[in-house]
Design a protein around this nucleic acid. Structure first.
Lengths: 214, 214
DNA sequence: ATTAGCACTGACCGACCGGTCGGTCAATAC
DNA sequence: GTATTGACCGACCGGTCGGTCAGTGCTAAT
Protein backbone atom coordinates (compact mmCIF):
# COMPACT_ATOMS: atom_id res chain seq x y z
CA UNK A 1 0.00 0.00 0.00
CA UNK A 2 2.86 2.34 0.73
CA UNK A 3 4.77 2.10 -2.53
CA UNK A 4 2.40 4.22 -4.51
CA UNK A 5 5.09 6.44 -5.97
CA UNK A 6 6.15 4.10 -8.79
CA UNK A 7 2.62 2.87 -9.28
CA UNK A 8 2.10 2.52 -13.02
CA UNK A 9 0.36 -0.79 -13.08
CA UNK A 10 -2.43 -0.16 -15.52
CA UNK A 11 -2.50 3.51 -16.19
CA UNK A 12 0.00 6.32 -16.55
CA UNK A 13 3.04 5.89 -18.70
CA UNK A 14 1.89 2.40 -19.49
CA UNK A 15 -0.67 3.70 -21.96
CA UNK A 16 1.92 5.65 -23.91
CA UNK A 17 4.00 2.52 -24.23
CA UNK A 18 1.05 0.48 -25.38
CA UNK A 19 0.14 3.14 -27.91
CA UNK A 20 3.69 3.17 -29.20
CA UNK A 21 3.75 -0.60 -29.45
CA UNK A 22 0.42 -0.74 -31.22
CA UNK A 23 1.46 2.00 -33.63
CA UNK A 24 4.74 0.27 -34.33
CA UNK A 25 2.98 -2.97 -35.14
CA UNK A 26 0.37 -1.42 -37.37
CA UNK A 27 2.61 1.07 -39.16
CA UNK A 28 5.14 -1.64 -39.89
CA UNK A 29 2.46 -3.87 -41.26
CA UNK A 30 0.60 -1.48 -43.49
CA UNK A 31 2.44 1.84 -43.73
CA UNK A 32 1.57 5.33 -42.63
CA UNK A 33 -1.49 6.07 -44.70
CA UNK A 34 -3.18 2.71 -44.26
CA UNK A 35 -3.29 2.94 -40.48
CA UNK A 36 -5.86 5.09 -38.73
CA UNK A 37 -5.54 6.60 -35.32
CA UNK A 38 -8.73 4.75 -34.45
CA UNK A 39 -7.06 1.43 -35.20
CA UNK A 40 -4.04 2.35 -33.12
CA UNK A 41 -6.20 3.42 -30.20
CA UNK A 42 -8.27 0.28 -30.44
CA UNK A 43 -5.24 -1.98 -30.49
CA UNK A 44 -3.68 -0.12 -27.60
CA UNK A 45 -6.89 -0.42 -25.63
CA UNK A 46 -7.30 3.31 -25.15
CA UNK A 47 -9.47 6.00 -26.62
CA UNK A 48 -8.42 7.86 -29.71
CA UNK A 49 -8.44 11.08 -27.75
CA UNK A 50 -5.90 9.62 -25.39
CA UNK A 51 -3.61 8.86 -28.27
CA UNK A 52 -3.71 12.54 -29.18
CA UNK A 53 -3.13 13.36 -25.56
CA UNK A 54 0.18 11.50 -25.60
CA UNK A 55 1.20 12.38 -29.14
CA UNK A 56 0.43 15.69 -30.71
CA UNK A 57 -0.32 14.32 -34.13
CA UNK A 58 -0.22 11.20 -36.24
CA UNK A 59 3.03 12.42 -37.68
CA UNK A 60 4.65 12.81 -34.29
CA UNK A 61 3.55 9.33 -33.32
CA UNK A 62 5.01 7.94 -36.52
CA UNK A 63 8.33 9.63 -35.89
CA UNK A 64 8.36 8.32 -32.34
CA UNK A 65 7.82 4.81 -33.66
CA UNK A 66 10.62 5.23 -36.16
CA UNK A 67 12.97 6.54 -33.54
CA UNK A 68 12.19 3.83 -31.04
CA UNK A 69 12.51 1.15 -33.68
CA UNK A 70 15.95 2.21 -34.76
CA UNK A 71 17.27 2.68 -31.26
CA UNK A 72 16.63 -0.92 -30.39
CA UNK A 73 18.82 -2.20 -33.19
CA UNK A 74 22.17 -1.55 -34.83
CA UNK A 75 24.52 -2.00 -31.88
CA UNK A 76 26.44 -4.77 -33.63
CA UNK A 77 28.03 -3.12 -36.59
CA UNK A 78 31.05 -2.24 -34.52
CA UNK A 79 31.91 -5.88 -34.21
CA UNK A 80 33.17 -5.74 -37.77
CA UNK A 81 36.08 -3.53 -36.83
CA UNK A 82 36.86 -5.12 -33.50
CA UNK A 83 40.11 -7.07 -33.51
CA UNK A 84 42.87 -7.11 -36.07
CA UNK A 85 43.18 -9.57 -38.92
CA UNK A 86 40.61 -12.09 -40.00
CA UNK A 87 39.15 -9.29 -42.04
CA UNK A 88 37.71 -11.77 -44.46
CA UNK A 89 35.76 -13.60 -41.80
CA UNK A 90 34.64 -10.34 -40.31
CA UNK A 91 33.09 -9.44 -43.62
CA UNK A 92 31.19 -12.69 -43.79
CA UNK A 93 30.08 -12.32 -40.21
CA UNK A 94 28.91 -8.79 -40.81
CA UNK A 95 26.84 -9.79 -43.79
CA UNK A 96 25.25 -12.60 -41.83
CA UNK A 97 24.59 -10.48 -38.79
CA UNK A 98 23.16 -7.66 -40.84
CA UNK A 99 20.83 -9.92 -42.75
CA UNK A 100 19.78 -11.73 -39.60
CA UNK A 101 18.99 -8.34 -38.15
CA UNK A 102 16.78 -7.42 -41.06
CA UNK A 103 14.92 -10.69 -40.78
CA UNK A 104 14.54 -10.68 -37.04
CA UNK A 105 13.05 -7.19 -36.95
CA UNK A 106 11.18 -7.83 -40.14
CA UNK A 107 8.38 -5.40 -39.50
CA UNK A 108 10.70 -2.60 -38.55
CA UNK A 109 12.94 -3.23 -41.51
CA UNK A 110 10.00 -2.95 -43.81
CA UNK A 111 8.90 0.19 -42.05
CA UNK A 112 12.23 1.88 -42.55
CA UNK A 113 12.61 0.72 -46.13
CA UNK A 114 9.16 1.96 -46.93
CA UNK A 115 10.12 5.31 -45.57
CA UNK A 116 13.33 5.32 -47.57
CA UNK A 117 11.35 4.74 -50.73
CA UNK A 118 9.10 7.70 -50.11
CA UNK A 119 11.16 10.66 -51.15
CA UNK A 120 8.30 13.01 -51.73
CA UNK A 121 7.44 13.76 -48.15
CA UNK A 122 10.13 14.44 -45.61
CA UNK A 123 8.05 12.60 -43.06
CA UNK A 124 10.99 10.75 -41.62
CA UNK A 125 13.63 11.39 -44.14
CA UNK A 126 16.19 13.45 -42.36
CA UNK A 127 15.84 10.97 -39.57
CA UNK A 128 16.41 8.01 -41.87
CA UNK A 129 19.46 9.74 -43.21
CA UNK A 130 20.72 10.32 -39.74
CA UNK A 131 20.37 6.78 -38.43
CA UNK A 132 21.00 4.81 -41.59
CA UNK A 133 23.82 7.12 -42.52
CA UNK A 134 25.46 6.70 -39.18
CA UNK A 135 25.73 2.96 -39.64
CA UNK A 136 26.72 3.30 -43.25
CA UNK A 137 29.51 5.74 -42.52
CA UNK A 138 30.82 3.44 -39.82
CA UNK A 139 30.90 0.53 -42.25
CA UNK A 140 32.74 2.56 -44.87
CA UNK A 141 35.28 3.65 -42.34
CA UNK A 142 35.98 0.11 -41.27
CA UNK A 143 36.37 -1.01 -44.85
CA UNK A 144 38.75 1.82 -45.58
CA UNK A 145 40.90 0.89 -42.63
CA UNK A 146 40.96 -2.70 -43.84
CA UNK A 147 42.08 -1.44 -47.21
CA UNK A 148 44.90 0.55 -45.66
CA UNK A 149 46.09 -2.60 -43.96
CA UNK A 150 46.20 -4.30 -47.32
CA UNK A 151 43.35 -6.67 -46.66
CA UNK A 152 41.32 -5.16 -49.45
CA UNK A 153 42.32 -4.66 -53.06
CA UNK A 154 43.42 -1.13 -53.85
CA UNK A 155 41.04 -0.64 -56.77
CA UNK A 156 38.01 -1.17 -54.56
CA UNK A 157 35.94 1.82 -53.49
CA UNK A 158 35.01 1.21 -49.84
CA UNK A 159 31.73 3.08 -50.23
CA UNK A 160 30.90 0.94 -53.24
CA UNK A 161 31.61 -2.24 -51.34
CA UNK A 162 29.53 -1.05 -48.41
CA UNK A 163 26.65 -0.25 -50.73
CA UNK A 164 26.93 -3.67 -52.29
CA UNK A 165 27.04 -5.42 -48.91
CA UNK A 166 23.99 -3.69 -47.57
CA UNK A 167 22.16 -3.65 -50.88
CA UNK A 168 22.50 -7.37 -51.35
CA UNK A 169 20.97 -7.98 -47.95
CA UNK A 170 18.21 -5.45 -48.39
CA UNK A 171 17.24 -6.82 -51.75
CA UNK A 172 17.23 -10.34 -50.38
CA UNK A 173 14.93 -9.14 -47.68
CA UNK A 174 12.64 -7.29 -50.04
CA UNK A 175 12.43 -9.84 -52.77
CA UNK A 176 12.26 -12.85 -50.49
CA UNK A 177 8.52 -13.27 -50.79
CA UNK A 178 8.68 -13.16 -54.56
CA UNK A 179 11.93 -15.06 -54.93
CA UNK A 180 10.54 -17.86 -52.84
CA UNK A 181 8.28 -18.97 -55.65
CA UNK A 182 11.03 -19.55 -58.19
CA UNK A 183 12.43 -23.04 -58.39
CA UNK A 184 15.76 -21.55 -59.48
CA UNK A 185 16.23 -19.87 -56.15
CA UNK A 186 17.25 -22.23 -53.39
CA UNK A 187 18.41 -19.87 -50.69
CA UNK A 188 15.31 -17.96 -49.65
CA UNK A 189 14.91 -20.14 -46.59
CA UNK A 190 18.62 -20.14 -45.78
CA UNK A 191 19.84 -16.60 -45.32
CA UNK A 192 23.10 -17.84 -43.89
CA UNK A 193 23.79 -19.68 -47.09
CA UNK A 194 22.98 -16.54 -48.99
CA UNK A 195 25.45 -14.55 -46.93
CA UNK A 196 28.08 -17.23 -47.42
CA UNK A 197 27.58 -17.22 -51.18
CA UNK A 198 27.69 -13.46 -51.22
CA UNK A 199 30.97 -13.45 -49.35
CA UNK A 200 32.34 -16.10 -51.69
CA UNK A 201 31.49 -14.02 -54.73
CA UNK A 202 32.89 -10.85 -53.23
CA UNK A 203 36.09 -12.51 -52.16
CA UNK A 204 36.88 -14.61 -55.19
CA UNK A 205 34.86 -13.12 -58.02
CA UNK A 206 32.79 -15.07 -60.43
CA UNK A 207 35.34 -15.95 -63.05
CA UNK A 208 36.76 -19.45 -63.50
CA UNK A 209 40.31 -19.93 -62.25
CA UNK A 210 41.82 -19.94 -65.72
CA UNK A 211 40.51 -16.48 -66.51
CA UNK A 212 41.83 -14.72 -63.46
CA UNK A 213 44.10 -12.42 -65.40
CA UNK A 214 41.63 -9.66 -66.22
CA UNK B 1 -15.92 13.43 -93.41
CA UNK B 2 -16.15 9.82 -94.31
CA UNK B 3 -13.64 8.38 -91.88
CA UNK B 4 -15.87 8.48 -88.89
CA UNK B 5 -15.14 4.88 -87.90
CA UNK B 6 -11.81 5.55 -86.18
CA UNK B 7 -13.04 8.83 -84.77
CA UNK B 8 -11.68 9.05 -81.24
CA UNK B 9 -10.51 12.61 -81.28
CA UNK B 10 -11.59 13.88 -77.92
CA UNK B 11 -13.89 11.35 -76.44
CA UNK B 12 -14.23 7.59 -76.41
CA UNK B 13 -11.18 5.47 -75.79
CA UNK B 14 -9.14 8.62 -75.43
CA UNK B 15 -10.54 9.24 -72.00
CA UNK B 16 -9.51 5.82 -70.79
CA UNK B 17 -5.97 6.50 -71.93
CA UNK B 18 -5.89 9.87 -70.24
CA UNK B 19 -7.22 8.32 -67.05
CA UNK B 20 -4.57 5.65 -67.19
CA UNK B 21 -1.84 8.19 -67.78
CA UNK B 22 -3.04 10.39 -64.96
CA UNK B 23 -3.30 7.46 -62.60
CA UNK B 24 0.14 6.25 -63.53
CA UNK B 25 1.64 9.64 -62.85
CA UNK B 26 -0.09 10.12 -59.52
CA UNK B 27 0.29 6.58 -58.23
CA UNK B 28 3.97 6.57 -59.11
CA UNK B 29 4.46 9.83 -57.32
CA UNK B 30 2.61 9.17 -54.11
CA UNK B 31 1.53 5.54 -53.88
CA UNK B 32 -1.84 3.87 -53.79
CA UNK B 33 -3.35 5.25 -50.63
CA UNK B 34 -2.24 8.83 -51.07
CA UNK B 35 -3.98 9.24 -54.42
CA UNK B 36 -7.71 9.80 -54.58
CA UNK B 37 -9.97 8.98 -57.47
CA UNK B 38 -10.96 12.61 -57.44
CA UNK B 39 -7.39 13.66 -58.10
CA UNK B 40 -7.04 11.15 -60.91
CA UNK B 41 -10.27 12.30 -62.53
CA UNK B 42 -9.27 15.92 -62.21
CA UNK B 43 -5.87 15.36 -63.75
CA UNK B 44 -7.40 13.32 -66.56
CA UNK B 45 -9.91 16.05 -67.21
CA UNK B 46 -12.94 13.83 -66.71
CA UNK B 47 -15.49 13.29 -64.00
CA UNK B 48 -14.84 10.86 -61.21
CA UNK B 49 -17.87 8.85 -62.26
CA UNK B 50 -16.31 8.42 -65.66
CA UNK B 51 -13.24 6.94 -64.09
CA UNK B 52 -15.47 4.34 -62.48
CA UNK B 53 -17.15 3.86 -65.81
CA UNK B 54 -13.87 2.76 -67.39
CA UNK B 55 -12.41 0.99 -64.37
CA UNK B 56 -14.52 -0.95 -61.97
CA UNK B 57 -12.62 0.06 -58.89
CA UNK B 58 -9.55 1.89 -57.68
CA UNK B 59 -7.87 -1.46 -57.34
CA UNK B 60 -8.53 -2.42 -60.92
CA UNK B 61 -7.20 0.93 -62.12
CA UNK B 62 -4.08 0.44 -60.05
CA UNK B 63 -3.49 -3.00 -61.51
CA UNK B 64 -4.02 -1.64 -65.01
CA UNK B 65 -1.41 1.02 -64.32
CA UNK B 66 1.02 -1.56 -63.02
CA UNK B 67 0.50 -3.77 -66.01
CA UNK B 68 0.86 -0.97 -68.53
CA UNK B 69 3.96 0.30 -66.81
CA UNK B 70 5.72 -3.04 -66.91
CA UNK B 71 4.79 -3.79 -70.47
CA UNK B 72 6.52 -0.71 -71.73
CA UNK B 73 9.85 -1.77 -70.32
CA UNK B 74 11.94 -4.88 -70.04
CA UNK B 75 12.43 -5.70 -73.72
CA UNK B 76 16.18 -5.42 -73.39
CA UNK B 77 17.10 -8.18 -71.04
CA UNK B 78 17.38 -10.58 -73.91
CA UNK B 79 20.35 -8.67 -75.23
CA UNK B 80 22.40 -10.26 -72.48
CA UNK B 81 22.14 -13.69 -74.06
CA UNK B 82 22.42 -12.59 -77.64
CA UNK B 83 25.67 -13.60 -79.25
CA UNK B 84 28.31 -15.98 -78.04
CA UNK B 85 31.38 -15.05 -76.07
CA UNK B 86 32.14 -11.72 -74.52
CA UNK B 87 30.11 -12.92 -71.60
CA UNK B 88 31.98 -10.65 -69.30
CA UNK B 89 31.14 -7.56 -71.27
CA UNK B 90 27.57 -8.69 -71.57
CA UNK B 91 27.32 -8.76 -67.82
CA UNK B 92 28.63 -5.25 -67.51
CA UNK B 93 26.29 -4.06 -70.22
CA UNK B 94 23.35 -5.71 -68.59
CA UNK B 95 24.04 -4.09 -65.27
CA UNK B 96 24.35 -0.70 -66.91
CA UNK B 97 21.25 -1.11 -69.01
CA UNK B 98 19.23 -2.36 -66.09
CA UNK B 99 20.25 0.49 -63.85
CA UNK B 100 19.67 3.01 -66.61
CA UNK B 101 16.23 1.54 -66.99
CA UNK B 102 15.46 1.99 -63.32
CA UNK B 103 16.59 5.58 -63.43
CA UNK B 104 14.87 6.48 -66.66
CA UNK B 105 11.50 5.20 -65.51
CA UNK B 106 12.15 6.41 -62.02
CA UNK B 107 8.54 6.87 -61.04
CA UNK B 108 7.48 3.49 -62.28
CA UNK B 109 10.41 1.80 -60.64
CA UNK B 110 9.42 3.29 -57.36
CA UNK B 111 5.86 2.25 -57.94
CA UNK B 112 6.79 -1.38 -58.49
CA UNK B 113 9.24 -1.46 -55.63
CA UNK B 114 6.68 0.03 -53.34
CA UNK B 115 4.33 -2.71 -54.30
CA UNK B 116 6.97 -5.35 -53.75
CA UNK B 117 7.43 -4.09 -50.23
CA UNK B 118 3.76 -4.43 -49.41
CA UNK B 119 3.26 -8.04 -48.46
CA UNK B 120 0.05 -7.65 -46.58
CA UNK B 121 -2.37 -7.08 -49.40
CA UNK B 122 -2.19 -9.03 -52.61
CA UNK B 123 -3.03 -5.85 -54.45
CA UNK B 124 -0.49 -6.43 -57.16
CA UNK B 125 1.52 -9.21 -55.77
CA UNK B 126 0.77 -12.10 -58.01
CA UNK B 127 1.26 -9.68 -60.84
CA UNK B 128 4.62 -8.53 -59.54
CA UNK B 129 5.64 -12.13 -59.29
CA UNK B 130 4.54 -12.75 -62.82
CA UNK B 131 6.30 -9.86 -64.50
CA UNK B 132 9.31 -9.47 -62.29
CA UNK B 133 9.72 -13.22 -62.14
CA UNK B 134 9.63 -13.52 -65.88
CA UNK B 135 12.61 -11.24 -66.25
CA UNK B 136 14.39 -12.78 -63.34
CA UNK B 137 13.99 -16.31 -64.65
CA UNK B 138 15.32 -15.20 -68.01
CA UNK B 139 18.39 -13.71 -66.40
CA UNK B 140 19.04 -16.86 -64.40
CA UNK B 141 18.73 -18.98 -67.50
CA UNK B 142 21.24 -16.88 -69.37
CA UNK B 143 23.67 -17.04 -66.50
CA UNK B 144 23.30 -20.79 -66.29
CA UNK B 145 24.05 -21.17 -69.96
CA UNK B 146 27.12 -19.01 -69.53
CA UNK B 147 28.19 -21.24 -66.72
CA UNK B 148 27.80 -24.33 -68.87
CA UNK B 149 30.05 -22.75 -71.45
CA UNK B 150 32.66 -22.28 -68.76
CA UNK B 151 32.46 -18.51 -68.65
CA UNK B 152 31.31 -18.59 -65.05
CA UNK B 153 32.95 -20.29 -62.10
CA UNK B 154 31.37 -23.61 -61.19
CA UNK B 155 30.82 -22.77 -57.56
CA UNK B 156 28.57 -19.82 -58.44
CA UNK B 157 24.82 -20.19 -58.03
CA UNK B 158 23.28 -18.45 -61.06
CA UNK B 159 20.21 -17.45 -59.09
CA UNK B 160 22.44 -15.93 -56.43
CA UNK B 161 24.37 -13.96 -58.99
CA UNK B 162 21.16 -12.76 -60.61
CA UNK B 163 19.86 -11.64 -57.23
CA UNK B 164 23.08 -9.80 -56.55
CA UNK B 165 23.06 -8.11 -59.95
CA UNK B 166 19.53 -6.86 -59.64
CA UNK B 167 19.74 -6.16 -55.93
CA UNK B 168 22.80 -3.97 -56.32
CA UNK B 169 21.00 -1.84 -58.88
CA UNK B 170 17.77 -1.68 -56.93
CA UNK B 171 19.51 -0.64 -53.77
CA UNK B 172 21.49 1.98 -55.62
CA UNK B 173 18.22 3.30 -56.94
CA UNK B 174 16.51 3.26 -53.58
CA UNK B 175 19.31 4.65 -51.49
CA UNK B 176 20.46 7.20 -54.02
CA UNK B 177 18.72 10.10 -52.33
CA UNK B 178 20.22 9.23 -48.98
CA UNK B 179 23.61 8.13 -50.27
CA UNK B 180 23.98 11.40 -52.08
CA UNK B 181 24.56 13.23 -48.85
CA UNK B 182 27.56 11.21 -47.76
CA UNK B 183 30.96 12.53 -48.75
CA UNK B 184 32.25 8.95 -48.83
CA UNK B 185 30.01 8.09 -51.73
CA UNK B 186 31.18 9.44 -55.05
CA UNK B 187 29.11 7.53 -57.52
CA UNK B 188 25.54 8.63 -56.90
CA UNK B 189 25.66 10.94 -59.90
CA UNK B 190 27.49 8.44 -62.09
CA UNK B 191 25.48 5.24 -62.34
CA UNK B 192 27.69 4.02 -65.14
CA UNK B 193 30.67 4.19 -62.85
CA UNK B 194 28.69 2.30 -60.25
CA UNK B 195 27.90 -0.44 -62.75
CA UNK B 196 31.52 -0.59 -63.82
CA UNK B 197 32.72 -0.93 -60.23
CA UNK B 198 30.09 -3.56 -59.57
CA UNK B 199 31.25 -5.56 -62.56
CA UNK B 200 34.85 -5.19 -61.45
CA UNK B 201 34.09 -6.54 -58.01
CA UNK B 202 32.03 -9.39 -59.35
CA UNK B 203 34.65 -10.38 -61.87
CA UNK B 204 37.79 -10.06 -59.82
CA UNK B 205 36.68 -10.16 -56.23
CA UNK B 206 37.83 -7.76 -53.57
CA UNK B 207 40.97 -9.48 -52.38
CA UNK B 208 44.47 -8.24 -53.16
CA UNK B 209 46.40 -10.21 -55.74
CA UNK B 210 48.61 -11.91 -53.18
CA UNK B 211 45.67 -13.46 -51.36
CA UNK B 212 43.99 -15.03 -54.32
CA UNK B 213 44.36 -18.60 -53.08
CA UNK B 214 41.27 -18.84 -50.95
C1' DA C 1 -38.87 9.92 -85.61
C1' DT C 2 -37.87 6.63 -82.55
C1' DT C 3 -35.16 3.60 -80.34
C1' DA C 4 -30.97 1.54 -78.35
C1' DG C 5 -26.58 1.98 -76.65
C1' DC C 6 -22.70 4.22 -74.86
C1' DA C 7 -19.62 7.89 -72.96
C1' DC C 8 -20.17 10.95 -69.71
C1' DT C 9 -21.74 14.04 -65.85
C1' DG C 10 -23.21 16.29 -61.27
C1' DA C 11 -25.29 15.27 -57.27
C1' DC C 12 -25.17 12.33 -53.79
C1' DC C 13 -24.23 8.37 -50.30
C1' DG C 14 -22.43 6.12 -46.01
C1' DA C 15 -18.16 5.39 -43.98
C1' DC C 16 -14.26 6.91 -42.22
C1' DC C 17 -10.50 10.21 -41.68
C1' DG C 18 -7.37 13.24 -38.34
C1' DG C 19 -8.26 16.07 -34.83
C1' DT C 20 -10.91 18.78 -31.02
C1' DC C 21 -14.10 19.53 -27.30
C1' DG C 22 -16.19 19.53 -22.76
C1' DG C 23 -16.03 16.97 -19.06
C1' DT C 24 -14.88 12.91 -15.52
C1' DC C 25 -11.90 10.90 -12.27
C1' DA C 26 -8.00 9.78 -9.23
C1' DA C 27 -4.00 11.41 -7.26
C1' DT C 28 -1.17 14.99 -5.35
C1' DA C 29 -0.25 19.79 -2.94
C1' DC C 30 -1.43 22.83 0.29
C1' DG D 1 -11.13 20.52 3.38
C1' DT D 2 -10.03 22.72 -1.58
C1' DA D 3 -7.25 23.62 -5.82
C1' DT D 4 -4.59 21.78 -9.33
C1' DT D 5 -3.05 18.54 -12.43
C1' DG D 6 -2.85 15.22 -15.97
C1' DA D 7 -4.63 10.81 -17.80
C1' DC D 8 -8.55 9.58 -19.97
C1' DC D 9 -13.10 9.31 -22.30
C1' DG D 10 -17.49 9.81 -25.47
C1' DA D 11 -19.19 12.73 -28.63
C1' DC D 12 -18.47 15.34 -32.21
C1' DC D 13 -16.19 18.47 -35.97
C1' DG D 14 -15.30 19.53 -41.01
C1' DG D 15 -13.66 17.20 -44.63
C1' DT D 16 -12.47 13.41 -47.84
C1' DC D 17 -12.80 8.89 -49.17
C1' DG D 18 -14.42 5.10 -52.72
C1' DG D 19 -18.35 4.24 -54.96
C1' DT D 20 -23.37 4.82 -56.88
C1' DC D 21 -27.09 6.54 -59.65
C1' DA D 22 -30.40 9.00 -62.40
C1' DG D 23 -30.07 11.49 -66.12
C1' DT D 24 -27.99 14.06 -70.41
C1' DG D 25 -26.15 14.28 -74.97
C1' DC D 26 -24.50 12.04 -78.96
C1' DT D 27 -24.28 8.44 -82.55
C1' DA D 28 -26.08 5.01 -85.26
C1' DA D 29 -29.28 1.58 -86.63
C1' DT D 30 -34.19 0.92 -87.40
Amino acid sequence: MTGTTDNSSVTGADAAKRILAAAKHLFAEAGFDAVSMNAIAERAGVSKANVFHHFKSKNELYLAVLKAACNESSPQIDRLGSDQGAFVEHLRDFSQAHLANLLRDEKISRLIQRDLLENGSQRGKEFAEQVFGQNFARLVEILREGQKKGELRDGIDPAMLATLLIGADVFFFQGREVLRHFPDVGFTEAPDRYSAMLADILLHGILPKNQLNG
